[in-house]
Design a protein around this nucleic acid. Structure first.
Ligand SMILES: [Zn+2]
Ligand SMILES: [Zn+2]
Ligand SMILES: [Zn+2]
Ligand SMILES: [Zn+2]
Lengths: 135, 135
DNA sequence: GCCCCGGCGTTACGTTATTACGTATGTAGC
DNA sequence: GCTACATACGTAATAACGTAACGCCGGGGC
């Protein structure tokens, strides 16, 4: 269980963030709900409301291609640049990194198009080093 | 996909691709289903099966952050590099582009990590030039 | 003929996300 | 004190998105 990280989390927010931190990987909202039934959670909305805030605080990231959520890998949870995720399709492990140079190029494109960027999703699917078959 | 031209589409695939082309923007699978009820479509699976093939052929792209699908903007539908999408949150317009330089940097990261990349999602959310308020 | 396979139609089901309504609590202004 | 407002919460119901499992049919290879 992680403690005392960022803004004052409410009880529900702390429980959800704790579940994600403990899991060490992505969880769906309904998986979180099941984990927290013993703590009194009864409905999906309790999870989604907490997740909305945690994402807003930058403590949790949403993985669009998995419909799942993952705790930010930066322990301090201080905000950081746009995150990208490499998702292994064999073992499910997710690696977070901050592709600043690539983002800079993407922002060049948005500027040239007059597109005001608010949020970026970058997700790589493939096979991690551990799961690559040596044959 | 190799050098061959578009495979012959089945009737259902052609109907689904036609819907997406006519729409000129993203549609959800269920929106396509509703559009095609008069053509005999009755169940989501008919749409999803056609979409799977069209995505495989590179003629349609899936937008993960919208749970929607869009016809490839390259009229010839010949295969191209990894596509990125800028999605206006005000008017819903989607612009497809191929950020080759940014992809090259992302591939540098995957190589350094021994991650075998199979598929990449890049989606930018924000406000398009048309919708930007001058104020 | 016979087998195999890809596409198809249908039913039923599973998963993910939101709407709507009411309650509780804290705080600022009066 | 009391009201007005904002935020969080609890619950039920429903919408939206996606898939499993079954069987049928037609075309190509042998
Ligand atoms: Zn992060
Ligand atoms: Zn792996
Ligand atoms: Zn394309
Ligand atoms: Zn717009």
């Amino acid at each position: 269980m992680s403690v005392e990280t960022h803004p004052d989390l409410t009880k529900n927010q702390a429980l959800v963030f704790g579940s994600l931190s403990d899991a060490g990987g992505p969880l769906t909202a309904y998986a979180i709900l099941d984990l927290l039934r013993d703590s009194g959670f009864r409905a999906p909305l309790q999870v989604y409301r907490a997740l909305d805030k945690l994402v807003e605080y930058g403590m949790v990231h949403r993985l669009e291609s998995l419909n799942a959520f993952v705790a930010c890998s930066h322990k301090g949870c201080s905000s950081h640049g746009t995150a990208a995720f490499a998702i292994c399709e064999k073992c499910g492990v997710v690696s977070e990194f901050t592709p600043d140079k690539a983002m800079s190029l993407l922002r060049d494109w948005t500027k040239s198009e007059g597109f005001q960027l608010s949020r970026t999703t970058i997700e790589l699917r493939g096979t991690c080093r551990q799961c690559a078959v040596p044959n």
